[in-house]
């Protein structure tokens, strides 16, 4: 369907993108996020790659937490409406440590033993 498209177009809802960013910064995998939002992994992957949070592996924990806090601070507008429509109400905006295979490093280290 999108084969003939030249420009990138915002196909996904603002709320969906916000939820993806938050869960991604918390430290969940693209596959886990896709399962939550009932999207394909490739869709989630595309949204993340097109965002400013694409290089998660290069962030240290402090920086990642700061970005996550930023997202938490912009969550509500003046009328008190949440960007995610309240779906992240019970999510703590605290990062999880990345697993050994999620970090940046030589390929050899990433191979599961």
């Amino acid at each position: 369907m999108s084969r003939g498209m030249i420009f990138r177009r915002a196909q996904h809802d603002e709320s969906v993108r916000y939820i993806i960013y938050v869960l991604w910064l918390i430290g969940y995998s693209q596959r886990a996020i896709a399962a939550v939002l009932k999207l394909r992994t490739k869709q989630v992957s595309g949204i993340i790659e097109g965002s400013i949070y694409c290089n998660r592996a290069a962030m240290d924990d402090e920086f990642r937490q700061a970005r996550l806090t930023d997202l938490e601070m912009i969550r509500f507008d003046e009328n008190g409406v949440a960007l995610d429509g309240g779906r992240l109400d019970r999510i703590r905006f605290v990062i999880r440590p990345l697993g050994a295979r999620q970090g940046r490093g030589p390929l050899r280290r990433k191979v599961a033993r």
Binding site: R8, A10, D70, M73, I74, L83
Partner: peptide
């Protein structure tokens, strides 16, 4: 670009 609302809010926060 695509991240209109989110990016705008992040910018104003900064």
């Amino acid at each position: 670009m695509s991240n209109s609302v989110i990016m705008r809010r992040l910018k104003s926060l900064e």
